[in-house]
């Protein structure tokens, strides 16, 4: 699928380019509210990834890939879980159990908890984003 699904359809290409940032923004929103409202890293990752899939459909695979290179995806795939795990370790370092957010570490426990949970969500989001896109590319005939 080296060509776009819709050929050189200008409308589709333009709309896709326009919509993509908003989708990504929404994704970030979902991500950042994950620890207090429905949402979270996984959903956010999928939402953001969908923007790239949309671009791939509209603009064609090569161009989409050009925007989201393998050299970026690979570190993202790995670093997400790393963030997750390291935060867990951080909790241990701070004197709690693994992933025990509610600990006093520079800030009051509630604040620490919020920060850490967000960080974990970010990690998850990054990974999911990268992985979904990678899978899509792979299935699309990479």
């Amino acid at each position: 699928m080296s060509e776009s699904l819709f050929g050189e359809d200008v409308i589709v290409r333009t709309i896709a380019r326009l919509v993509a940032p908003f989708i990504q923004l929404f994704g970030l929103y979902v991500l950042m509210h994950g620890h207090v409202s429905p949402g979270g890293g996984f959903q956010a990752g999928v939402i953001i990834a969908s923007s790239f899939i949309l671009l791939a459909l509209a603009l064609g695979l090569p161009e989409s890939k050009e925007r989201f290179k393998k050299t970026i995806r690979l570190p993202m795939e790995s670093s997400g879980p790393l963030i997750f795990a390291l935060i867990g370790v951080t909790c241990i370092l701070a004197g709690g159990y693994y992933l025990q957010y509610g600990i006093a570490f520079l800030f009051p426990p509630a604040v620490v908890s919020a920060i850490l949970i967000s960080a974990v969500e970010i990690g998850i989001g990054i990974t999911v984003l990268a992985m979904i896109v990678t899978i899509f590319y792979a299935m699309a005939g990479d």
């Binding site: 790995s78 670093s79 790393l82 795990a85």
Partner: peptide, 12 residues
């Protein structure tokens, strides 16, 4: 954790 962390570091 050790093997899992390694698993994530390795590809990078």
């Amino acid at each position: 954790l050790i093997p899992l962390l390694t698993a994530y570091i390795t590809p990078m």
